[in-house]
Structures are given as structure tokens and as C-alpha cells.
């Protein structure tokens, strides 16, 4: 290879390291890289140089909500790519740890919550055949819902039914400082908005934003959150859809809520 040819490939390698190639050049370089170890080594090196330019950009704190969004999306992605058991084992481990803090059982509440879940699943057509992807996601949601019901076997836990003016329905399950929202019929949230779960300790008490979440797939939604510091035994819950990505101070229109919140 002549020096001129070598430099031409080096220019394309640099372009690739900066994600700055036109599609045609990119394809040409890919074909060349398959047989040129020198250019592959140069690309690896130039990528490190390019990445160093990232350090000229100030770190920015992502909203706290983002890690929750990532957590929520994990099982769906893991199921889509195959490895089901480790993810569910991890979920069970975390939930078992949480359950271990509670000592007693409450069968009436468990039965009530189970009835709500059955109603939720039937009304949303869980048992209707779906495409594989949907089935995987449904299976994931069902597993999560089953875990929530399992937690309700413990004495200090309780659930609150949530209803809407439309097809959305669900319940909030409280176990100590943790609340699980199980819902169906929530549409995918609009771009630039998020759903927000609110809680209050009783009629007339201030509704407090517990956490935001996104719905990326129509069907079942299971969201786990920690109650705000100082809040104990909330009995009023609501779900709103609000603009932005930071938790608002006041709720908008309640889409789904307990009878006192809706």
C-alpha cells in the first residue's frame, strides 16, 4: 500500500472514530478494516483520543428519575434477549429481602389484592395469544405482579384499589416504606412527559409525588418506589401524567387513583 493510500484510509479511520463518515465512506472502511490489522489498531487508538474530547464537557447530573427508568426497562430487555432466570432471581432476591422485614400475614388483604390482579389481567386480555415479544413482556409483568402479591402476605402490608374513568385500573401495594404500583391500561406516555405516582396519608392530607415513571409498552405496568421520608401508611394514591422529567410539587389531572384521589 502506498503512503498516499495509507493516509486515505487513516483519514477514514479518524472519521470513523469521530462518527463523522458519510455512509458510503463508512461501508468502504468497514470492508477495508476486515483485512487490515494496522487500521484496526489505529481505529482503537483514535477512539481513545476521540473519547478524551468528552472530558472537555462538564459532567452533568442526570435526573434521579433516569436510573429508575433504566431499572424499569431492564427485565423487558433481558427477556427479549433470552436470559430470563438470572433477572427474575435477582428480583426475587431483592423482594425476599424486603419481605423478610415484615413478620405477619394478612389473608383478607391478600385475597382482595389477588382479586384486583385477576381482574386487571383478565380485563387487559393477558390470556389472549400475542406475538412472542408481547408474551415475553406480559410474562415479565406477570412475574412482577405475582411478587407484589407475595409481599402482601405479610401482616403490615396492605393494598389500595385504583380506578379511572376509562380502561385503566390497578392497585398500590404498601409494604413498610415501599410501595408497588400495579396497573394496566396506561397508555405510553407522550414525549416530554412522564407519569407520576402520588401518595397522601388520608383525606385532606397533601398529595406528595413519590416517583415518576415511563410506560414504554402498553399492557401491564409494575413500578416500585420508596415512600417519601416521614410518610407512613398512605391510603390515598393517584397517578398523573405531567410535563418534564423532574417531580412536580402539585398533581395535575388524576388519571388513575383511589376513590379519594380521583
Amino acid at each position: 500500500m502506498s503512503i498516499e493510500q495509507h493516509d486515505e484510509w487513516s483519514e477514514l479511520v479518524v472519521g470513523r472514530s469521530l462518527d463523522a463518515l458519510e455512509p458510503g465512506d463508512d461501508a468502504r472502511l468497514s470492508a477495508h478494516l476486515a483485512g487490515c490489522s494496522d487500521c484496526r489498531a489505529l481505529l482503537s487508538e483514535m477512539r481513545q483520543v476521540a473519547s478524551s474530547m468528552a472530558y472537555d464537557v462538564a459532567d452533568a447530573e442526570p435526573p434521579a428519575e433516569l436510573i429508575n427508568r433504566i431499572r424499569d426497562a431492564l427485565p423487558q430487555h433481558a427477556l427479549g434477549s433470552g436470559p430470563l432466570v438470572p433477572v427474575l432471581a435477582d428480583q426475587r432476591r431483592r423482594r425476599a429481602s424486603r419481605s423478610a422485614r415484615v413478620a405477619h400475614r394478612s389473608r383478607p388483604l391478600l385475597a382482595a389484592a389477588a382479586a384486583v390482579v385477576v381482574a386487571v389481567l383478565v380485563s387487559s386480555g393477558v390470556f389472549v395469544a400475542r406475538a412472542d415479544h408481547d408474551r415475553d413482556q406480559t410474562r415479565s409483568a406477570l412475574q412482577a405482579e405475582t411478587a407484589v402479591i407475595g409481599n402482601l402476605q405479610h401482616g403490615s402490608s396492605y393494598s389500595v384499589s385504583l380506578r379511572s374513568g376509562g380502561p385503566a385500573a390497578g392497585f398500590a401495594a404498601v409494604n413498610g416504606s415501599t410501595v408497588d404500583l400495579v396497573a394496566t391500561g396506561l397508555d405510553r406516555n407522550n414525549a416530554g412527559t412522564m407519569y407520576v405516582l402520588w401518595a397522601a396519608t388520608g383525606r385532606g392530607a397533601t398529595m406528595t409525588a413519590v416517583r415518576g415513571f415511563s410506560v414504554t409498552t402498553a399492557g401491564q405496568t409494575v413500578v416500585t418506589a420508596t415512600l417519601p421520608a416521614g410518610m407512613t401508611k398512605p391510603t390515598i394514591f393517584g397517578v398523573t401524567e405531567q410535563e418534564g422529567t423532574t417531580l412536580p410539587r402539585t398533581p395535575g389531572t388524576v388519571i388513575l387513583g383511589s376513590s379519594s384521589a380521583a
Binding site: A54, A60, I67, I70, R71, L74
Partner: peptide, 18 residues
């Protein structure tokens, strides 16, 4: 998942900044 969260704690800010 805790390993993923650890990596997020380390690199979430520079990734988000970029």
C-alpha cells in the same frame, strides 16, 4: 443489577453531559 447501577454511578454523569 447492582453492578450495572455501580457503573451508572461512575459514568452516568459524563455520559449524560456528553
Amino acid at each position: 443489577t447492582s453492578a450495572l447501577e455501580q457503573l451508572y454511578a461512575r459514568y452516568g454523569k459524563p455520559c449524560y453531559g456528553l
